[in-house]
């Protein structure tokens, strides 16, 4: 038992060390702009545009559910225009970034881990190195920049879609008028609601892509290893998202 705890502790410390080394290697490769700049545009399309359908789909239904749950909770106790407040605040501050983040941890994180993992086990990463490319500048930096830059865009659109479906639901099913919904939406709005959600999204994008790349490049053991890496990337990214979510709330919302 004690031996197992000790072994796990050593593994955890080694993991932190490897993560630190990975980030240091990435920072060192940043000056190779000529290598990563062109590739970043390709990744921005893959991370951003290709992720939109799943993020918007989730946001659309979240908006509907939020409006209905708010109405169910408020009936007879709180003015109904507060439905707009709850839908807006919740979508911007929490559910927009977190649900999109968790969904994209699966779509983007797993896909990156599997892609880089396959490249690792088929010696494509070694081939890159023998051609005098740094895998960090060729593979990692474009993905991490694309994730960090595009997640806020995806989340912003998801928030807009969520609020829109919440508004449509309020009109169609709850008997609210548009001015009432907008009154609620504007009631406690602060600009901080917007930038807080976007900063949080950028940190999620950074984390998901970083984890996907780090796990992918450390893949060992053929097809089974690639499958394990894809799963690990999703699990680790989901854990980091939830921890970061709490951290951002503690730091910026108090």
């Amino acid at each position: 038992m004690i031996e197992r705890i000790g072994h796990r502790t050593v593994q955890a410390i080694e993991g932190v060390g490897r993560a630190g080394q990975f980030i240091a290697d990435m920072i060192r490769a940043v000056p190779e702009v000529g290598v990563w700049a062109r590739l970043t545009l390709v990744q921005m399309r893959r991370v951003g545009v290709d992720s939109l359908p799943v993020a918007l789909f989730i946001a659309a239904f979240t908006g509907v559910v939020l409006a209905l749950q708010a109405s169910y909770t408020f009936t007879g106790a709180v003015p109904m225009y507060f439905v707009g407040t709850l839908v807006g605040k919740t979508m911007m501050l929490e559910l927009g970034p977190v649900l999109a983040g968790l969904a994209l941890a699966g779509r983007v994180g797993a896909s990156m881990a599997a892609e880089l993992g396959t490249m690792r086990v088929t010696e494509q990463v070694d081939a890159l190195e023998t051609l005098a490319y740094d895998p960090q500048s060729f593979l990692v930096i474009p993905r991490v920049i694309a994730g960090t830059a595009m997640f806020p865009v995806v989340v912003a659109l998801a928030v807009v879609v969520g609020i829109t479906t919440g508004w449509v639901t309020s009109l169609a099913l709850l008997g609210l008028s548009t001015p009432e919904f907008i009154k609620g939406l504007k009631l406690f709005y602060q600009f901080k609601d917007t930038w807080f959600g976007l900063v949080k999204s950028a940190s999620f994008g950074f984390t998901i892509t970083m984890v996907g790349c780090a796990v992918g490049l450390s893949t060992r053991g053929g097809a089974e290893g690639v499958g394990r890496s894809a799963t690990n990337a999703v699990v680790y990214a989901a854990i980091f998202i939830l921890v970061l979510d709490a951290l951002w709330a503690a730091v910026l919302l108090r």
């Binding site: 490249m119 088929t122 010696e123 494509q124 070694d126 081939a127 890159l128 190195e129 023998t130 051609l131 005098a132």
Partner: peptide
């Protein structure tokens, strides 16, 4: 150094 050396991998390691 790597610019002076060509490496042919066992399974070619082509970028697919």
């Amino acid at each position: 150094l790597r610019r002076e050396i060509g490496f042919v991998f066992q399974f070619a390691a082509l970028f697919d």
